[in-house]
């Protein structure tokens, strides 16, 4: 019930228009890592909310612990409704290292929504991808790495704002990124970033 209300509310706020440009739908027998440009706290939950039900039930957004753990309601949403994988942004130790956490989720057969830039950008440009995505790819080459481009979300809830403003957002899902054996880290990250950028739709 709360799940439905939450997704309905997100719809009303964002109008979420979804485009699947990939040649085929995500393989249900594999786990997926959806990676996208990051400009708002709503990014992860919006991607989660537009996935078809069978994919959604096994997909967990990666989100910042300090934001989603803060208040009772956010904590409830992140744990009970969309089962976020909350990662530490400031105090990383060996035990709670994000990559380790994410690998455990993939091992458990769940999919992830992941933001390789790490922190939220201003929305106009996509920042440099950090090495996290490369770590995942080397440990989990069997997963499908699906690029997603998010448009306008930075305007719905910009960095530093608490209250959202409704705007129509678009989400564009691309083809899974083909993996090239022995590809260098920076080449791979560059290619992954390009894959997200090419999904940017021309008005």
């Amino acid at each position: 019930m709360i799940d439905l209300l939450f997704r309905g509310g997100l719809r009303l706020l964002t109008g979420a228009q979804t485009f699947w440009t990939g040649a085929s739908a995500p393989d249900p027998d594999k786990v997926q890592v959806y990676f996208a440009n990051h400009s708002s706290h709503l990014d992860a939950v919006l991607i989660w909310s537009v996935l078809p039900p069978d994919l959604r039930s096994k997909t967990r957004p990666v989100a910042a612990r300090d934001y989603w753990k803060k208040y009772g309601f956010r904590r409830y949403l992140s744990q009970k409704v969309f089962r976020a994988v909350l990662i530490e942004r400031t105090h990383c130790t060996k035990e709670n290292h994000p990559v380790k956490q994410l690998c455990e989720v993939l091992e458990g057969g769940d999919s992830l929504i992941f933001f390789p830039e790490g922190s939220r950008g201003k929305g106009e440009e996509i920042g440099v991808f950090k090495s996290g995505l490369h770590h995942l790819v080397t440990r989990f080459p069997d997963a499908e790495y699906i690029p997603v481009y998010l448009e306008n979300l930075n305007r719905v809830l910009p960095k530093g704002e608490v209250l959202p403003v409704p705007l129509i957002c678009t989400l564009t899902f691309g083809d899974p990124l083909p993996l090239i054996p022995n590809e260098g880290r920076s080449e791979f990250l560059q290619r992954a970033r390009e894959a997200v950028l090419t999904l940017k739709r021309e008005l």
């Binding site: 306008n152 403003v165 409704p166 705007l167």
Partner: peptide
């Protein structure tokens, strides 16, 4: 209003 505002692509100062 949501469609209209999307089209005028507001800046940060309008939030």
């Amino acid at each position: 209003l949501r469609e209209f505002v999307t089209l005028i692509a507001p800046g940060r100062g309008d939030h």
